[in-house]
Amino acid sequence: MPAVAVVTLVIATVIIAAAALGLARVIGHLKAVTDTLDAVIGGVRAVADRTSTVPTVVPSVNASLKPVRDFCETI
């Protein structure tokens, strides 16, 4: 095999290995980003659950307090 062919194969191998290493690093970074986004989504869901709107009990509470409101308006 001529020396030029060997050099070409070595250079091609180095280029392919560098590309594979770069892609492996990209996969690692994307995995880290996915883990961080999962944690953020979990935190957002927790905040949303704790700050949800007032339940539908409010109309019945307001109805129960109507006599008190009416009395306070007469004062």
Rank of each mutant, 00 (worst) to 15 (best):
T51R: 03
A63K: 05
T51W: 01
S60G: 14
D70S: 06
I27K: 08
L23R: 15
P59L: 09
T8H: 08
K31M: 11
K66M: 00
A63W: 00
V57P: 02
V10Y: 00
I75R: 08
T74P: 04
S64H: 15
L65G: 03
A48K: 11
L65I: 08
A63S: 08
A46K: 04
P59G: 08
P59M: 08
V47F: 12
V61R: 03
K31S: 13
P2A: 10
L9E: 14
V26P: 06
G43E: 05
P59W: 04
S64D: 09
V4T: 03
M1E: 05
A3H: 01
A19H: 02
G22W: 11
A32M: 11
L65K: 06
V26L: 13
P2T: 14
P67N: 07
A20W: 05
I41Q: 15
V68N: 02
V68L: 14
I15E: 08
D38A: 14
V57E: 13
I27L: 03
S60W: 11
I15V: 15
L30E: 15
P2H: 04
D35G: 07
H29F: 13
D70C: 03
A12W: 03
T8D: 11
A63I: 01
V44W: 07
T56R: 03
G42S: 04
V7F: 10
A39K: 00
V26D: 07
R45F: 05
V6N: 09
V7G: 05
L21T: 13
V61K: 04
P67W: 05
I11P: 02
T53Q: 10
P2L: 02
V26S: 09
A32N: 05
T34H: 11
A48N: 09
L9D: 11
T53I: 04
G42L: 02
V6M: 12
A46D: 03
G42R: 02
A48W: 03
P67K: 07
V57D: 10
N62T: 10
N62K: 05
V33C: 07
V26Q: 12
V44E: 15
G22K: 05
V40Q: 08
V14L: 09
R25W: 14
T13D: 07
V57C: 05
I15M: 15
V6K: 13
M1Y: 01
A20S: 13
P55H: 12
